[in-house]
């Protein structure tokens, strides 16, 4: 069978990491927000494939940035 295309391996797709409950709490406290103020990401997003995300989990995304070198971003998983 032909190898399937995996979006996660593409150069333009940054690393997506699932946060634990503890880490999530820390992040929310750091920015003094609730989960509702976080940017969103769809569960169906190809970058989350095979990572067993559930709705309301928080994803940490580490991107390359032209201004800061590396930058972290957080998103809440939604339907």
């Amino acid at each position: 069978m032909k190898e399937k295309f995996d979006a996660k391996k593409h150069v333009l797709v940054p690393e997506h990491i699932k946060l634990t409950k503890k880490q999530t709490k820390k992040i929310l406290e750091e920015y003094k927000i609730t989960k509702n103020e976080l940017p969103r990401i769809s569960v169906d997003d190809p970058a989350l494939k095979d990572l067993k995300f559930e709705i309301n989990d928080v994803v940490k995304i580490i991107r390359k940035s032209p201004t800061a070198g590396k930058s972290t971003y957080y998103r809440r998983v939604v339907k």
């Binding site: 920015y31 927000i33 509702n36 103020e37 976080l38 940017p39 991107r63 940035s65 201004t67 800061a68 930058s71 972290t72 971003y73 957080y74």
Partner: peptide, 17 residues
């Protein structure tokens, strides 16, 4: 952030400058 205080960027311009 936008007017509903939702976060758009965690640091302005990713480097905060």
């Amino acid at each position: 952030r936008n007017s509903s205080k939702e976060i758009i960027q965690f640091r302005f311009g990713e480097d905060g400058l």
